[in-house]
Structures are given as C-alpha cells and as structure tokens.
C-alpha cells in the first residue's frame, strides 16, 4: 500500500465546502422526493377517498383516518432524522412535500384530465400537525413525552386546521327535496361514475352520540391511535436506518 501526500490549500478547502454543500442540497432534494411519494402512496391507499372528496370529510372517520394514514410514514421519517442527526424535521419534510404534491397531482389529474372541480377534492393539510409534533420532539428531547404529547399535538390540531378549509362546505342548501350540505350537493352534482353514493363511508346516526356528534371522541381517539403508531413506527424508522451490512442477499 502506497500513500502519497499532497499539499492542500485554502482555495481547495473552499471548493471542498462548496462541493459538500451541493451534495447535501441535492441529497435532501432526493430524500424529500422519496419520503414525499412514500408518504403519499401510504397515505392515499389508507385514507384515499376521505382525502380526495369534500363530501367524505365527515366527523367520525375523517379525523381518525387522516391522522393514522399520515402518521405511519411521518413518524418513521421523524425517528430516522432524529436518531441519525437530531433533526426535528422528519414530519414537516413529509408533510410539506405531500401537500405540494397533492395539490399538483390533483390539478393535473383530477381537474386536468377528468375535470373534477378542485373545490371538490382539495387535499387536507397536516403541516401544522407535523410542525407541532416536531416541536414537541425538539422541546422535550424525550421519546416518552413525544409519544404522548407529540401524538396528541398531531391529533388535536388535525381537525381544527382542516375545519377552517372545509367549514364553508357545511352550510345547508335545499336540493332534491331535502336538506343537504354544500359538500353533499357538490358530490351529487359532479358525478363520480364509479363511486355510487352508498360507498360513502361517513358518519351516520347512532343511538348514542356525544353532544350531537362524534367529533370530540373521534379526535380524542385519533390521539390514542397516534400513540400506538408512535410506538411501532418509531421503531420501524430506527430499524430501517440502522447501519447494517450483510454478506449475502
């Protein structure tokens, strides 16, 4: 083994820093793209129509499915970024990426190709929830506290943050001989040929609801689910990023 020694210089070092910055930037772009589409594939296959359609965003399933479907990937990525680099950005990275992506692809595909109006299918946002959970992690720096309060920070902010956008669609109208919300009427008006009305899995009456609706328990329950998701997917995020080398594959 032969080594050769060459003198370095301040210019060379500056160049090295520059190269390092470029690599870091493009690496984060690539990672951002990957976790975005990973989150999106996972989220849309689990939440799907509740995320797409304004007349599926109900009070019983939407708050829970929204939280669950996003948190799986978000927690794993958060765990990876925190464990490996103490960066409290994992959730926000995924959340920003997926939101931009959803707006883009819904414009191009759903509106552009099949002309569904965008107000029928704008995506929900989890960015505030993600920032809140990332902040809980940063401020507490403790796993247990993040499991408990991070999950609830995510879950409790999810519905209010989105209610701001969907509330106008819950004003009543009279159509087809009955009271409907604007959202219902949009769903009827802009025909989805392969999604008949009965497929809409939304809140329907029960003999026991809390204060006239299932919203409160749904939000509270989504936090509980969030804690379990934290416990499992933090572990997955940890395992998937371990520096493991194998001789044979």
């Amino acid at each position: 083994m032969q080594t050769q020694t060459i003198k370095t210089s301040p210019e060379l070092q500056k160049e090295g820093l520059e190269v390092g910055k470029r690599i870091q930037f493009v690496a984060w772009v690539i990672i951002g793209m990957t976790v975005t589409v990973g989150t999106f594939a996972s989220q849309s296959l689990l939440e799907g129509d509740w995320s797409f359609w304004i007349d599926w965003k109900d009070r019983r399933y939407f708050p829970i499915l929204g939280v669950i479907s996003y948190m799986l990937m978000l927690v794993s990525v958060q765990a990876a970024c925190w464990i490996k680099a103490r960066l409290p950005v994992g959730m926000t990275l995924c959340a920003v990426g997926i939101n931009l992506w959803q707006w883009f692809e819904r414009y191009v595909n759903w509106w552009g190709w099949f002309s569904y109006p965008m107000n029928e299918l704008f995506p929900e946002t989890v960015i505030p929830c993600a920032i809140a959970a990332d902040c809980v992690l940063l401020l507490s720096r403790k796993l247990l506290l993040t499991y408990l309060f991070g999950a609830y920070a995510f879950a409790l902010t999810f519905y209010p943050a989105n209610w701001v956008m969907i509330a106008p669609f819950h004003q009543p109208v009279e159509a087809l001989g009955q009271t409907l919300s604007i959202a219902d009427y949009i769903g009827f008006s802009y025909v989805r040929s392969a999604i008949p009305e009965y497929l809409r899995m939304i809140e329907s009456g029960t003999l026991r609801t809390f204060e006239g609706g299932a919203l409160g328990p749904a939000i509270f329950f989504s936090g509980v689910v969030g804690i379990f998701i934290y416990a499992i997917f933090w572990w997955i995020g940890d395992q998937c990023t371990r520096n493991r080398w194998v001789k044979k594959i």
Binding site: T34, V35, V37, T39, F40, S42, L45, S76, C81
Partner: peptide, 8 residues
C-alpha cells in the same frame, strides 16, 4: 411504500 424509510 414505507421503503422510503429504507431510502433515508
């Protein structure tokens, strides 16, 4: 889809 975490 969670393969994105392996990517990370």
């Amino acid at each position: 889809a969670w393969a994105a975490v392996w990517f990370l």
